[in-house]
Design a protein around this nucleic acid. Structure first.
Length: 342
DNA sequence: AAAACGGGGTT
DNA sequence: AACCCAGTTTT
């Protein structure tokens, strides 16, 4: 009987896999869930101390549900991505209040919970409940795309569909929990992003990318899109006493709720200039990059004698040396203020 | 500077 | 369902 893909992966796991990680002690959903969420964003070695502290303080889902969000966040400090800690807390309350403290036992139901997507739901369900479902985290994406030479960027819908389909096609019928952990281990320790250890790989025979000597082509990279560059003018008003005017931005969108300088179009600046107490002076242009575009910011400085010399604007606030800590300033505003005050 | 990451939100 | 977004680390 020929060894299947899953057979080889499982045999490898029994010898070379990691079996002693803190969340592998009991394969119950609470610790598996916590570890999966932490591992989404951080490597195993970093996660371990956080996981241990977290479990010591919140040993079960009800303990987490009863906690204040602030305390959850404080135990999360240093892990980043705090929205996920909020989702963790939210989900604990849902499970505690609406599921009698019991986790849903299928991927289909787990995925309805905040912060749990298809892959994380699959991991919990496969590891804890032996449900025969696939996972597709970053590790598994690498393994599957290479062994089966599935090209294209995984962020692309059709590529993701082919990866999920292939991951499901090779699932074993037994030991689904061990297999799920095995695939994550294989991607994390052997089929790594750069310089994978193909000699040590249990599925190197028949790995299409290896046969074609094209490992580095998989997974396919995100097509690079040239980001557009936009420009904006920011009006910086400063008194001779050193007070600086900022304005709170709307709660939605770029820098939502943060303080910044009012943005102007060139036309608006032109129309405004005759009404200003003194001519605006251009400060150094600064560049700020977002995920989808670059922004060239042209700050224009207007110096005035006193706050009363300039009309009020909506949501304004005046920064001085004493109170500047009190405002959440967007990055570019911080830089401009720094250059202004030295 | 750009990619990777896995999930959320919106249309 | 298809699309785009945010926040952070890694490359």
């Amino acid at each position: 009987m020929k060894q299947t893909f899953a057979d080889k992966v499982l045999a490898w796991f029994d010898v070379f896999g990691r079996h002693d990680l803190p969340w592998q002690q009991s394969l119950t959903p609470y610790p598996v869930w916590i570890s999966e969420i932490m591992l989404q964003q951080t490597q195993v070695q970093t996660v371990i101390p956080y996981f241990d502290r977290f479990m010591a303080r919140f040993p079960c889902v009800n303990a987490l549900a009863e906690a204040d969000l602030d305390e959850v966040l404080s135990l999360w400090t240093g892990l980043g991505y705090y929205a996920r800690a909020r989702n963790l807390h939210k989900t604990a309350r849902i499970i505690s209040e609406f599921h009698q403290g019991e986790f849903p036992r299928s991927q289909q139901d787990l995925v309805k919970l905040p912060g749990i997507g298809r892959s994380t739901a699959g991991a919990i369900s496969a590891i804890c409940f032996n449900e025969r479902v696939a996972i597709l985290d970053g590790n598994v994406k690498r393994v599957i795309s290479r062994v089966f030479a599935i090209g294209g960027w995984p962020g692309q819908r059709d590529t993701a569909e082919r990866l999920w389909g292939q991951a499901e096609a090779v699932l074993p019928h037994e030991r689904i929990n061990a297999y799920t952990q095995a695939m994550m281990d294989l991607g994390a320790t052997v089929c790594v992003g750069k310089a994978p250890l193909c000699e040590a790989c249990p599925v190197n025979e028949g790995c299409l990318a290896l046969e074609q000597d094209s490992i580095s082509d998989y997974p396919g990279r995100k097509p690079k899109v040239s980001k557009p560059t936009r420009r904006t003018i920011m009006l910086v008003v400063k008194t001779r006493a050193g007070e600086i005017r900022v304005a709170q931005r709307p709660p939605e969108g770029i820098w939502g709720g943060l303080y910044s300088f009012p943005e102007l179009t060139p036309q608006a600046l032109e129309a405004l200039t005759p009404h200003l107490p003194s001519a605006p002076r251009a400060l150094d242009t600064l560049k700020h990059s977002f995920t989808h575009f670059h922004l060239m910011i042209e700050p224009m400085l207007v110096e005035i004698d006193a706050i009363e010399d300039i009309p009020r604007i909506d949501h304004e606030a005046w920064l001085s040396e004493d109170n500047s800590e009190a405002f959440g300033l967007c990055r570019p505003a911080q830089k401009i203020i720094q250059s202004l005050l030295g």
